[in-house]
Structure formats: structure tokens, C-alpha cells
Amino acid sequence: MMGVTHALMGGLLGASSMFFTPELFLAAVAAGFLGGLFPDLDLAWKHRESLHFPVGYTVLSSVLIGAAAATGNYYVVLASYFTASAWLHSWIDILGGGLEERPWEGTTDKGVYSHSLDKWFPPLQIIRYDGAPEDFLLTVFLGASLYPLLNGYPEAQKVVVASVIIGGFYSLVRKKLLDARDFLLKFFHSLID
């Protein structure tokens, strides 16, 4: 799934703070949003392996949620939303496509790596690939759900709208990006040769 899909999902998870710690609402939404993005920072290394920890985040977020409920500490509460969103991201990626360059082809059995179990969870391809039309529809749904909850926070609402717009643009160009890259590589190779 797209990073913005995960971020909006995390932001919506953070919005649940309105029932538990309403005084931390906006900070919890931000922590959830950032936690939803965090695992995809491993795009620079081994994607869905370096920062995706489905089992590890499950344990860590459980401990932090328990500590947040027991203490009410500001930082522990925000850390619990951040890690719970990273946990959700890591598990939800299993519903998407695999790690191949063109995930819509469905040629790999690598979805998300579990360090704890030392194995790859296979991609279920319910959302066929990041940027697929169904991924964008999920982004729109999440954005439409989160936006009204942020009434009174216009800057946060702008982040939600920008996330949906970015998701829409990415969905439009997703399959064309690899073709453009291949064209540019051939072009530069022809200049060198």
C-alpha cells in the first residue's frame, strides 16, 4: 500500500485518543500518522524487512499501550500510538502485493519479513499493489473519515487533503514510473556508449 494510505490509517488510529486522552488528540493523531509512515523508511534499504516488524511491533505496542493506560504519561501515550500504527502498517502490508519491481504481476511470495519467526509472510494481494485503484479508494475513505475528526485543526486537515492528492497522483502514474525509468536508463546508456 501507499505510504499515504498507511499514514492516514495511523492518523485515524491516533484519533481514537478522543475517547481515552482527549487532551492529547492532535498529538496522538500526529504520532499515529508518523508511525504509519515509519516502516516505509526502509525503502532505502531492504524494503519490508529492515523496519517492518509485525511480531516485534505487536509486542512493543502491547507493552506501551499497557504502560500508557497505567501511567497516562504524555510520552508513553504518544509512543503507544506511534508503535501501534507501525504495527498496523507491518501487518496490513501482508494484504498488498509482493516485493517484485512490478507487483501487479504477482511473481513473488515475499510480502513482509518476520524477524521473530525468520520467515516471509506471503502477499495476499487483496490490494494488488501500492497505487492500485483499490489502494487509492482506501486512501480516500481513510482521508474522508479522518478529515471531519480534525474539525478545528485546519492545518491538520490540509495534511489529510494533501495526502489524498499525493495518493491520487501516485496512483495515476504508478505503472508508468517504471517505464519512464527504463526509458531514461536506456537514453543515458546510449549517450555513454
Score class of each variant (00 low, 15 high):
residue 35 G to K: 10
residue 91 W to A: 00
residue 173 V to G: 10
residue 142 L to F: 01
residue 2 M to A: 15
residue 3 G to L: 06
residue 189 H to D: 09
residue 68 A to M: 06
residue 94 I to G: 11
residue 165 I to F: 14
residue 94 I to F: 08
residue 124 L to T: 01
residue 131 G to K: 05
residue 84 A to L: 14
residue 39 P to R: 06
residue 109 D to K: 13
residue 58 T to Y: 04
residue 9 M to T: 07
residue 20 F to N: 09
residue 107 T to Y: 15
residue 153 Y to Q: 04
residue 6 H to L: 00
residue 50 S to W: 03
residue 48 R to Y: 07
residue 7 A to W: 10
residue 73 N to Y: 00
residue 33 F to V: 03
residue 130 D to N: 11
residue 138 L to N: 03
residue 5 T to Y: 01
residue 2 M to I: 15
residue 71 T to L: 09
residue 87 W to V: 07
residue 9 M to G: 14
residue 13 L to M: 13
residue 56 G to I: 00
residue 74 Y to Q: 12
residue 146 L to Q: 04
residue 188 F to W: 05
residue 127 I to T: 08
residue 82 F to T: 00
residue 116 S to F: 14
residue 188 F to E: 05
residue 99 L to E: 14
residue 84 A to G: 14
residue 28 A to R: 00
residue 182 D to E: 14
residue 79 A to S: 04
residue 62 S to C: 04
residue 135 D to W: 11
residue 172 L to G: 15
residue 96 G to L: 14
residue 117 L to Q: 12
residue 76 V to M: 02
residue 30 A to N: 05
residue 47 H to D: 01
residue 138 L to W: 08
residue 49 E to V: 14
residue 148 P to R: 05
residue 185 L to Q: 15
residue 78 L to W: 01
residue 184 L to V: 06
residue 189 H to V: 06
residue 48 R to F: 08
residue 136 F to G: 01
residue 67 A to M: 08
residue 167 G to A: 07
residue 174 R to Q: 03
residue 95 L to T: 06
residue 69 A to Y: 10
residue 16 S to E: 07
residue 159 V to E: 10
residue 66 G to W: 00
residue 32 G to V: 03
residue 54 P to S: 04
residue 23 E to G: 15
residue 57 Y to V: 03
residue 114 S to G: 10
residue 61 S to A: 09
residue 58 T to A: 12
residue 88 L to I: 09
residue 95 L to P: 06
residue 21 T to E: 05
residue 27 A to I: 12
residue 77 V to F: 09
residue 126 I to Q: 02
residue 156 A to C: 15
residue 161 V to E: 04
residue 81 Y to E: 10
residue 6 H to Q: 08
residue 148 P to C: 05
residue 118 D to R: 15
residue 150 L to H: 02
residue 18 M to L: 07
residue 88 L to V: 13
residue 55 V to Y: 11
residue 63 V to D: 12
residue 63 V to Y: 13
residue 178 L to N: 14
residue 20 F to T: 10
residue 56 G to N: 04
residue 51 L to D: 05
residue 15 A to T: 05
residue 45 W to V: 12
residue 59 V to M: 03
residue 167 G to T: 04
residue 165 I to Q: 13
residue 116 S to I: 15
residue 65 I to F: 09
residue 169 F to N: 10
residue 182 D to W: 10
residue 149 L to T: 01
residue 81 Y to G: 10
residue 137 L to A: 09
residue 65 I to D: 00
residue 192 I to Y: 13
residue 32 G to K: 00
residue 79 A to G: 02
residue 27 A to K: 13
residue 113 Y to M: 13
residue 166 I to Y: 12
residue 114 S to A: 11
residue 180 A to C: 02
residue 111 G to D: 02
residue 21 T to C: 07
residue 10 G to D: 07
residue 38 F to I: 01
residue 190 S to P: 07
residue 121 F to D: 01
residue 168 G to E: 09
